[in-house]
Design a protein around this nucleic acid. Structure first.
Lengths: 202, 202
DNA sequence: AATAAGTCGAACATAACTGTTTGGCTTAGG
DNA sequence: CCTAAGCCAAACAGTTATGTTCGACTTATT
């Protein structure tokens, strides 16, 4: 959509960028944020928004894509090699904030976008964790009696849980990563093997 | 609200009951269900609904209260004595379906009701799990390096996760309880101690 | 059977949000 | 420097939901 044949002008690109950024922020705080709010937050007229995006769904999609891209970018910097336990801890450390921030945005996306599109957007990060878990399994430190997809879901679920707890004031940001890793590492431990102690490699 | 001094008539009570029941069902399928839909599902006119409930929030509250009551009632039948591991397994077996059913309803409640009210409604079931976990801790089978509130949240979070997986078609109902208990029992295991094997007491 | 309580359809009044159109103004870029 | 591309406020149309009011009809209870 948008560019038929002529190239966009610089100010148009600037507007689009401002809108997508504002959408990510507004929907991140309130998944029901109206397009008027988003346009205002972007410092742009509502009509301008409609000049670039045909519908609300398109705006949500763009905002979600942006967030996923940023997340992917941030996660690219994480070293997932070496001891799977430490690698998982590093992954949690790097991603739980992202999950927290994108939480409400995800709610908006789930309301406005078709389910297939959501899975498509998440396929990148999901693959990352899957291969890490698979490696941990082959090295015998992660359990093999539960499907990988389930373990991935548990990880994300616990991170969401932490986000909820922080919002409710029952958990502080400093403790979040520690709680998450302690929980998930235990959950991933094969039955019969001892749960790893936290002091391993701080 | 409702009864000022005179007693309600039998048909009024019947209507109210039908409305609350329909609300629980409709909101359970779609948290955005309108009051018109709910009234229609209850076999009652929209005006009648407003005669008994002043606002949408009141309807949601009533539906949520009903669901919680029913859940509490079902959980009363669960024996939480004996080996905490087995007790937790029994609890999961009995409650994950309830969590699944009440999921969308909870979403509606979170949108319409003040946060304090939600916690108040959940205090019953939460207390049940808390005492069970506390007992398991004193017996040395559950970890003490994480707050109880966090462990409770992990349990519920994993159950929600299972509900999501079932909806996505990645998990079947038969396997759900087993996956949940295997995951949670491992997550609750104290660091340094072996994760319990599933064959313990089937 | 009489009366108060309850039900119901239809209609009204707000209020939001989504999209669209118009016409005038500003600015990027050749 | 000039023109097309872009911006914007205001106003409009369409939809959907929440609450409320009215008047006629039905039913529970005494």
């Amino acid at each position: 959509m948008g560019s038929r044949s002529t190239v966009k002008r610089a100010d148009a690109l600037r507007s689009i960028d401002a809108i997508v950024k504002a959408a990510a922020e507004c929907l991140g705080q309130n998944p029901e944020a109206s397009l008027s709010e988003i346009a205002r937050a972007a410092g742009v007229g509502r009509v301008t928004l409609y000049a670039h995006f045909a519908s609300r769904a398109e705006v949500v999609d763009a905002a979600m894509s942006r967030a996923v891209d940023r997340g992917n970018q941030a996660l690219d910097a994480v070293d997932l090699a070496g001891d799977p336990l430490l690698a998982l801890a590093r992954y949690v450390e790097a991603s739980w904030r992202l999950v927290d921030q994108a939480r409400a945005l995800l709610v908006a996306a789930q309301r406005e976008l078709p389910p297939g599109r959501i899975r498509e957007l998440h396929s990148g990060p999901a693959a990352r964790v899957e291969t890490l878990i698979a490696r941990g399994r082959s090295e015998g430190v992660f359990r093999t009696d539960l499907p990988i997809a389930w373990l991935v879901n548990v990880l994300h679920s616990v991170m969401h849980s932490a986000a909820d707890e922080i919002r409710a004031g029952r958990l502080t940001s400093e403790h979040a990563a520690g709680h998450i890793t302690a929980t998930v590492l235990a959950a991933f431990t094969p039955p019969g093997r001892p749960v790893p102690e936290p002091g391993a490699g701080t």
